[in-house]
């Protein structure tokens, strides 16, 4: 757990220190990417707790989800339906809360609070 928090903090610090920013037009892509990453992180914690974590499944899942989300945003931009990115946001959002619930229950059972 400590390693995860440290990695997160390291990433944030690195980003803030280098002060990297992207053009305004990319903000939607970035937002969807952040959601995909949050989803992957929670999914990864859940799988670790269930002891079903698999490097291949995890990494490929993260990459394909992110790419598909970016593709949806791109298509939405091109066909003039900007709101298409909401599809990705809703899908990731649902999964995030679902995984969060599962992680919470798994932690309870692990700590014997049931």
């Amino acid at each position: 757990m400590l390693a995860l928090v440290l990695a997160l903090a390291l990433g944030v610090t690195l980003g803030l220190l280098t002060n990297v920013s992207v053009p305004a037009a990319w903000l939607t892509y970035l937002g969807v990417a952040v959601l995909a990453a949050i989803d992957a992180c929670l999914g990864g914690i859940k799988a670790s707790l269930e002891q079903t974590f698999d490097d291949k499944v995890f990494v490929s899942g993260f990459l394909t989800n992110t790419l598909m989300a970016a593709f949806i945003v791109f298509v939405g931009d091109r066909i003039g339906v900007r709101e298409l990115y909401l599809a990705a946001v809703v899908a990731f959002g649902l999964r995030v809360f679902e995984n969060l619930g599962t992680v919470r229950r798994l932690l309870f059972s692990r700590w014997g609070w049931e």
């Binding site: 390693a3 990695a7 390291l10 990433g11 002060n19 970035l30 952040v34 949050i38 992180c41």
Partner: peptide
Amino acid sequence: ALVLVFGVLGLLIAVSFNT
């Protein structure tokens, strides 16, 4: 791999914030 993705998440959040 999971630790790495946490790092990536942090980086993405920081970049969004900067932007």
